[in-house]
């Protein structure tokens, strides 16, 4: 069966909530039912049929041909299958994902992968602020799964992250990994000011020394690290990085001692 393909007719006239369009949400629906789903968030009330031409029938594999920064909530809560967006997306892409694979071939807006619990989200372009982070009022951010940004991420990437792996390959904004509860954040290409600000536990792995650190981080030496070896091999075998990141004995800073202080920032010696 061919992938269920949504081809964008024209630039959307309003912000769209694409959260109903997930493999599990569309399973068993016929074409007419899918076309009638309301996506528009203003009084225009656009439906799927207004915005997209539909082809194919395999709801376990969704493709969006064409994207827009008005595409909000792409693949929200998806649990299985694959979703591919050939274009940009708006806010909260892959929010609360639990399984399956979401690929965004363009850029993503703020809160991409917010509260993700499982699956793999890959953004080929760049991501906005609050990557994987909680919405206002939520206690924890990303809670599992793998989130890869091939481009750049904005500020507060991995804010309040609790579990899982986030990798940002072309640098990120300020306060990456702020208030982290646990989990692993990998940043190559340089992090902004004060990564790990108020982190409790978790690991932030960098490809170079951070340009600034909160003064409540303390230097913890550079003994040989089996964890670094495991991590390096994992990142290469998962096709996240092309070459090892940390090496045999990375330097380690422990913190943030203004919070619990069990976190770490590692970078090659």
């Amino acid at each position: 069966m061919k992938a269920l393909t949504f081809t964008l007719r024209a630039a959307p006239p309003e912000r769209l909530d694409l959260s109903p369009l997930t493999p599990q949400g569309l399973a068993g629906l016929d074409k007419r039912a899918i076309q009638a789903i309301r996506l528009g968030q203003s009084k225009l009330a656009s439906t799927v049929g207004d915005i997209f031409r539909i082809a194919g029938s395999n709801a376990n594999s969704l493709v969006f041909e064409g994207g827009s920064s008005r595409f909000d909530g792409v693949a929200t809560g998806m649990t299985e299958g694959t979703v591919r967006v050939a274009g940009d997306v708006g806010a909260q892409a892959g929010r609360g994902m639990r399984g399956g694979q979401l690929t965004i071939e363009g850029d993503a807006g703020p809160h991409a992968g917010s509260g993700m619990r499982g699956g793999r989200l890959e953004i080929i372009g760049s991501a906005g602020d609050h990557l994987g982070a909680p919405l206002a009022g939520e206690l924890a951010g990303m809670n599992g799964g793998v989130l890869i940004v091939r481009g750049r991420a904005g500020a507060f990437a991995a804010d309040r992250m609790r579990r899982g792996l986030i990798a940002v390959l072309k640098g990120c904004g300020d306060h990456a990994g702020s208030r982290m509860i646990a989990g692993t954040l990998v940043v190559t290409g340089g992090a902004g000011e004060m990564p790990g600000y108020l982190m409790r536990r978790g690991s932030i792995l960098l490809d170079r020394a951070p340009k600034s650190l909160s003064p409540s981080f303390v230097e913890c030496g550079a003994p040989d690290s089996v964890f670094a070896a495991l991590m390096d091999r994992h990142l290469v075998t998962e096709d996240i990085l092309k070459r090892p990141l940390l090496g045999r004995a990375p330097r380690r800073y422990g913190g943030d001692n203004a919070a619990l202080g069990l976190g770490e920032i590692l970078f090659p010696a």
Binding site: T184, S203, P223, D224, S225, F227, M231, H234, L262, E264
Partner: peptide, 20 residues
């Protein structure tokens, strides 16, 4: 001690006198 899950495998890192 630090818990790490990588690709479905779960590891524990226990600080000791020569590292971990």
């Amino acid at each position: 001690q630090i818990s790490k899950k990588l690709g479905g495998r779960h590891f524990w890192r226990v600080p000791v006198m020569d590292g971990e």
